[in-house]
Design a binder for these strands. Sequence first.
DNA 1: TCGGATAGGCGCCCA
DNA 2: TGGGCGCTTATCCGA
Lengths: 238, 238
Amino acid sequence: MEAADLKEALDSSKTIIITANCSITYSGRAESFLAEGDRIIIIKSDKTLLVHQPGGSAPINYMKEGTAYKAIAEGGKIILSCSNGKEYMAIYFNRIHSFTAQELADGQKLQITGSEKDMSVMIYNNPKLIEDGFRPLSMEEHTRFGFIDVFGYDRNNVLVVVECKRYAADMGAVEQLKRYVDKVRQAKGLSLVRGIIAAPKITPSAAEMLRQNGYEHRNISPPKYMERFDEKQKRLEV
Amino acid sequence: MEAADLKEALDSSKTIIITANCSITYSGRAESFLAEGDRIIIIKSDKTLLVHQPGGSAPINYMKEGTAYKAIAEGGKIILSCSNGKEYMAIYFNRIHSFTAQELADGQKLQITGSEKDMSVMIYNNPKLIEDGFRPLSMEEHTRFGFIDVFGYDRNNVLVVVECKRYAADMGAVEQLKRYVDKVRQAKGLSLVRGIIAAPKITPSAAEMLRQNGYEHRNISPPKYMERFDEKQKRLEV
DNA sequence: TCGGATAGGCGCCCA
DNA sequence: TGGGCGCTTATCCGA
């Protein structure tokens, strides 16, 4: 790869993939330096930059969408510098292992189920999951109070605020629930509003905080409407 | 790329990079489906899988380190299925645009400054940033009160708990501070313990919550020891 | 744009 | 291994 190849690709809407030995400096929201090593560098068509090491899920360095690039050759080596106005990065290439630039087209979005939102819909449609006699209010009404997952009356007409968590509920979840309960209590001028966490589990410290506040926990897991994938994939599985 | 090439690479410690038109199913912590489109697929030497679309920072699908893979050819097309025992993914390839498999070596770690930890060290070394007469006792320590960023006495020998945030402090930050203050107050049997948020800014609702609790805010930004990078990169900059 | 909240969050440290 | 929590978190959604 020559600097000219990189420049040409950067001027196009192609997605660039480079593997190379390089070192990297970053300055912006923080300051960082990454010494020489082999990495995968991706510059997407929207000018997002990702630098990946040969292990791990998260990029070690990156720049967000809309970054401007400049490639220069200095002493036989290529330096790629870039900026979005507030942040700066420079990649100092030692050896290029591979270089590709391709037009990639993909307008698809991920269809996903099993989110916290799906949990609240499930509870709305199956109020017994909370308890017998629980009557969720309409979605419209429930949005009037802000980001309350599920909101309704129990069999004694006491207001109930339900906070869903798709994984273990932690202290933050209990505090969030407390904020909503307090908000509803104030807005309605009520002394008693119940708070319930719906989650597959709860951490010990969160359980303690829950108890202290007089709130409750229901053992509920997020729904997975597409379980059929599971079956299909188990057959394919290694 | 033939299925055999993929299999061979999967049996090695090489890092595989494929660009292809494909569709993807996932089942595990949630369930998802991604219809046909062009993507970059990376399988790292530690068997991390990343699928990236031509735009955006985050992978659209992924599997973590230690995943097991199986490549099969079915009706002239390649299907790559994988699992870690709890999660399953399958990539259905329509057309392969490119395929590479390389040995990449990188043992470097990112050297970074400007973290919350660096803020607490800065405050520990420059107590005046909080106020005159502030005497820090500890920083970022797992005291028996928990993870308190900076902890000390003010000029009147009143205990002070400082919570650092590298960006805008939100309601969660105030609640976190409150947990620590309450814990110290209980453990020491004190009626008055001060709470201070050190952050470059604070959201309006967090400021309100701060006020209600009698806590304070100090306008402090995370330090950037490597500012020299900034200068260097500004010169290189586009 | 900002604020609030979720995420298949990830990654790090520590009991 | 699980809890607690920071992150250059990213991303979505609503005001």
